[in-house]
Design a protein around this nucleic acid. Sequence first.
DNA 1: AACGCAGTTCCGCAATACCGAACAGGCGAA
DNA 2: TTCGCCTGTTCGGTATTGCGGAACTGCGTT
Lengths: 258, 258
Amino acid sequence: MVQSVHRAVRVLRELATAGPRLGVTELAERIGVAKPTVHALLRTLESEGLVRQDRETGKYLLGPGLLQLGNAYLDTQELRTRSVTWADALASRTGEAVWVAVLAEDHVLVVHHAFRPEGAVQILEVGATIPWHTCALGKAIVAFLPSDRQAALLEGELPRLTGRSVSDPAVLAEQLEQVRGIGYAVEDQESALGDAGIASPVFDRSGEAVGAIGVVGPVEHVLAEETARRKHAVAVREVARNLSRELGAGRGTAWSEA
Amino acid sequence: MVQSVHRAVRVLRELATAGPRLGVTELAERIGVAKPTVHALLRTLESEGLVRQDRETGKYLLGPGLLQLGNAYLDTQELRTRSVTWADALASRTGEAVWVAVLAEDHVLVVHHAFRPEGAVQILEVGATIPWHTCALGKAIVAFLPSDRQAALLEGELPRLTGRSVSDPAVLAEQLEQVRGIGYAVEDQESALGDAGIASPVFDRSGEAVGAIGVVGPVEHVLAEETARRKHAVAVREVARNLSRELGAGRGTAWSEA
DNA sequence: AACGCAGTTCCGCAATACCGAACAGGCGAA
DNA sequence: TTCGCCTGTTCGGTATTGCGGAACTGCGTT
């Protein structure tokens, strides 16, 4: 484990989470490293374009090179490239926005976003991260993970984003069991009030859940009446299954075990 | 300059540019570093989520952490957040897609993309990079840079992307002079056949050109007839000026010098 | 069955990154 | 204006740390 690289990434993370425009001194005490050390790291990162220095205040903030690398990641993500057409189809079939996501640590990372066909301005959510237990995408993925990883996630932090977030491991475990039974997961305003979602897991040739696809929208559209909800669930599950086949998953993978 | 951080970034860059899914050995000889060293770097980056290892082949590819950092960069980019409403307005006024970009090294980096109001599927170009001299955005920014940076860019590599790309420094210098005169730059299929663009620079309180905003679309829409072209140019320049004011640029900045 | 090549591990050397202390520049208070 | 305090920055000695040669292991091929 290379120490200086580890510290450099911590610097980037700190700039990303704590407000941007941090000074050398502030960064140094946040990370617990001597000031000159942080300075050297910053200079290196700056020469690579991953960090830039505000000429007026002398403070540091994230650099454009990160966006290029982030975009390069998206291109390597086979799930994303393969999901584009399926996501579009699902969006027009359901009339709702469609998200495709993968699991990164204990958060869900949105890698593709097909806009709702109709409707006003929508902001692009690619790159957004959400705690796994507060969204349908996350529950869909985790439900089909090996049980040791599942247990680890259930024991981790389970923050509450809204009054409806579920933070009790026992309740979540039960929900996951249910997801394994029906093949899709549901979120009812657990990450943002007014928003709901339905999602199903996507598998690749290894048989592991590599991500999930699902619809996201106003709770009135997605979950209001039972018939609409069922129609959405069927559409989502079907698309997820097709996408999985395209990624090389055999018929015998987890979603057919249910 | 911290050596191991520099090398770690080189690893990431190599994975981003050369095809993804590179092996340790291949990376080692590309970068000119011993195999065990690269291995240690990769393990560190993997533990940070910036790199992941394909379990089947053992080869390495970019990780999801990069997307999170790239997105965090976008949030720090004041130009982007401020430009959103202006870009939407410009898109509906002109009926074309609108891009907002900054200069990163000798490339232009798209930080915001407002879709064309009408029209079929469009792919999101945020994160895309284009050589500065092959697009209107790039010429608009460079034209108002300090003359030493301008000279450096003109002396650098000027690759040709299409048969219409301009790679002669003298011709480009003349174009930049013209841009300074009229306050906007034009691209005629210099980065992709069939695509054209018109862009104006955006300034901040320091008076430096921090980016550019402009329309991009089929050459038939953007440059076909003189009247439409002029209308677009006026709209672009006006929006760029308003955006600059919002970023704190005084009346006395470069775009009014022309 | 033997080969070659991949990713991985080990260990000693010394190059390298770390940090304490001192420097320079900008801002606010007095 | 002057002082003092706070930045970001530079320097150089120390020993921690990362480096790479050589050896190991497991897979796919010949």
